[in-house]
Write a protein that binds this DNA or RNA. Structure first.
Lengths: 166, 166
DNA sequence: TATTGTTATACTCTATAACTATA
DNA sequence: TATAGTTATAGAGTATAACAATA
C-alpha cells in the first residue's frame, strides 16, 4: 500500500532512484508487464471488495455459480481452473455466510449442486458493480478505444485454450 | 500442464463444455483477462527456464543485479518489489550455486554488495534468450504491430507508479 | 474402474516480528 | 532513531495422497 521508497525532489541517492530503474531485460518481457499490471488491478480489486465482504477468489466463484447454477461443485471449480480440494473450503466459507447453498443432486448422489442464495446474488451484484468502477479507475490512463483495443488483444492471447494454467 | 477436461467431438456432457463457459461478469474484468494471460505466459516461462536451471523469480533477480550491480541486496529487492526477508533465501540460493557473490560494502558495513559471477552472467544471458523465444511463442496470435500496441498499452497502464503492488 | 466430495498433509510464497550490527 | 541483513514464525494458496460414497 505504502511504498517504502519515495522519490524526493531535493535529495536523490542511488538507492532512492533504483525503484523505477528496471532493466530492459525485464520490461521487454510481456509476462513482466502483465505481472505489474495485474498486481495493481488485483490490489485495487481486493480493496473495493473489502466493503462488500468477499475476496477476489470468492467473487470469481460467485460469478461462475450465478452463470452456471445449478451446477456441481467440481464444475464450478474446473471452470475457474482451481483445484477441487481448494474449492471445498472456498464453497464452505461462502455457504457458512449464507451466500450460497449446497443441495444434493438427485441425478447424481455423489454431487452437490451449488447455487446462490438471494443474499449471495445481492452480494455478487454489488461486487460486480464495485469491480466495474474499479476497472474504470485502473484503465484511467486509456481512452475508450484504447480500452477496447487492450481487451481485444488480451482476448486473442487467451482465446482457444483452457484456464488451467496453474 | 494437462487439463483434466477435454472437449470431445462426439460426446459432450454439460460438465465437459463448462470449462470454456465463463460468464461475462468475469471476462469483462480486465484483471481476469490479465490473470489468464499471465498464467499462461508464466507457465511457458517457467517451463523453458527449467533447462537453464533457474526460476522466473531468480531470473528477475539476476536481471536486476546485472543492471544495477554492484548494488546492495535491499536495492535489488526493492527494485523487484519483493520483501527483504524473501530476498535472503533467494540471494542465498543463487550464491550457493555460484551465480552471484555477496561482498561487504566498504562504504556501508551493514550492506552486502551483490553482483553476478561469470557463470551467473552466462546463465542470465541464456535465460534471457530462452525467455525472448518464449515471449515470441506466447505472442504468436498477434502480428508485430499488434504486439507493439499491446506492449504500449500495458506500459501506459503501469507507468508512473512503483512496482510494490503486493 | 472412474468420479465427487472430503480430509490430511506438505510445500511454496508471502508477511510480521524481532534480533544484530551498523549508521 | 533508522537501516541492512538475518532468523523464526505464521499465514495464505496450492498440490498430492488417500478415503468414502456413488456411478
Amino acid at each position: 500500500m505504502v511504498s517504502p521508497v519515495r522519490r524526493l525532489s531535493v535529495v536523490l541517492t542511488v538507492e532512492e532512484v533504483a525503484v523505477t530503474d528496471l532493466p530492459e531485460t525485464l520490461t521487454d518481457r510481456t509476462a513482466f508487464l502483465l505481472q505489474l499490471a495485474l498486481g495493481r488491478a488485483q490490489a485495487m480489486g481486493e480493496e473495493v471488495l473489502v466493503e462488500v465482504g468477499i475476496s477476489g477468489r470468492e467473487y470469481g466463484l460467485l460469478a461462475v455459480i450465478a452463470h452456471l447454477a445449478p451446477c456441481s461443485q467440481i464444475t464450478a471449480a474446473r471452470t475457474l481452473g482451481i483445484d477441487r480440494t481448494t474449492t471445498v473450503a472456498l464453497v464452505g466459507g461462502l455457504e457458512a455466510r449464507g451466500l450460497l447453498r449446497r443441495t444434493p443432486d438427485p441425478a447424481n448422489r455423489r454431487a452437490n449442486l451449488v447455487s446462490l442464495t438471494d443474499e449471495g446474488e445481492q452480494v455478487r451484484a454489488r461486487a460486480a458493480e464495485a469491480l466495474a468502477a474499479c476497472d474504470d479507475r485502473f484503465l484511467d490512463p486509456l481512452d475508450a478505444p484504447d480500452r477496447e483495443r487492450l481487451r481485444a488483444l488480451l482476448g486473442r492471447l487467451v482465446a482457444g485454450g483452457d484456464p488451467h494454467t496453474g
